[in-house]
């Protein structure tokens, strides 16, 4: 009996070491620049590490909706769905979805729902073994700052990045790839569905398509973990969206660096993305379908 227990422990130990080694292999790939430019052509430049500085849903939504926007609570994923996500893939993807919903509520200063969404985030995070951040102290901090929207937005941003750090430090970036996929899709979904006035349609549609660059970086980061079957399946869903974003025409002007008033350096020029109604509608349809697959109850 005693031997069985010891053998069992050794078995678990070997499995865990193996899992860590596999994860490390994936994270090491991330460090080599040329693998990211073209994932299928692995050229390793050992003298150049590449790191992605990804943006949180707060920053993406805050950029698209620079003015306070009318909140449409019907759009966000109901918290009642959270208990139905039983596998790690759906738990991680929907954790990202709820983080984006939490950001959306905070940007719109909807404090009543924000706390409930935060509790859902904490519960899902614990289900996928993200500990060490959602302690009582952090929860108290959220409650204390409920009245101050700026602080809440900052805390929400900090929470996303801390989660990324925690998963990076435990070589579980594949899980973060899933969380950030859910967060990005939900951010794009909320943005696309929130255009209510024709007068703002062109501006917001343009800003949504400017997220193409964020999407490209995010896609390259996620592709590093494509050995993970769950990551691979979400990448397949994102492929069509990537193609649509790539289809947009651009008005390009040469990039320049000039010195303006007060010796201020200005990086000027670049691309102005042209969005047609047809392209935007195709993008919106695809975002709705992808988001629906994520939030649908896992079988």
């Amino acid at each position: 009996m005693n031997n069985r227990i010891i053998r069992g422990f050794i078995g678990i130990a070997l499995l865990m070491v193996q899992c860590q080694a596999n994860n490390k292999k994936a994270s090491n790939i991330n460090l080599n620049s040329d693998t990211i430019v073209n994932i299928d052509t692995t050229r390793i430049d050992t003298n150049n590490k590449v790191t992605y500085m990804l943006l949180s849903p707060n920053e993406i939504l805050g950029e698209i909706f620079s003015d306070k926007h009318l909140l449409n609570i019907q759009l966000i994923n109901p918290i009642s769905s959270a208990v139905k996500y039983v596998d790690t893939k759906h738990q991680a993807l929907n954790l990202g979805v709820y983080i984006a919903d939490f950001a959306y509520l905070n940007l719109n200063e909807n404090k009543t729902n924000a706390l409930e969404y935060f509790k859902t985030i904490r519960d899902l995070a614990q289900k996928i073994n993200i500990y060490g951040y959602f302690n009582e102290g952090f929860f108290n901090r959220i409650e204390k700052n409920m009245a101050r929207n700026d602080s809440l937005i900052k805390i929400s941003q900090e929470m996303y990045y801390s989660m990324s750090d925690l998963l990076e430090n435990s070589s579980r970036q594949n899980i973060f790839a899933l969380i950030s996929s859910g967060a990005l899709i939900e951010s794009l979904y909320l943005s696309s569905m929130n255009i209510t006035k024709m007068s703002e349609y062109k501006t917001i549609a343009g800003k949504i398509f400017e997220q193409k660059y964020i999407f490209d970086n995010f896609y390259a980061f996620t592709s590093v973990y494509k050995n993970d079957k769950d990551v691979r399946s979400i990448l397949r869903q994102l492929d069509t969206l990537k193609k649509i974003l790539d289809e947009a025409d651009k008005k390009s002007s040469e990039k320049t660096v000039t010195q303006g008033n007060d010796n201020k350096v200005i990086i000027g020029g670049g691309d102005e993305i042209q969005v047609t109604d047809k392209l935007f509608n195709s993008f919106k349809e695809n975002v709705i379908a992808t988001r629906q697959e994520i939030v649908s109850i896992s079988k």
């Binding site: 590490k49 790191t51 990045y161």
Partner: peptide, 18 residues
């Protein structure tokens, strides 16, 4: 975006994509 810290060596280049 996310502030980053990394382990490096003298002469080693790190590229941050932003």
């Amino acid at each position: 975006s996310q502030a980053k810290s990394a382990l490096t060596a003298v002469g080693q280049k790190t590229t941050y994509k932003v």
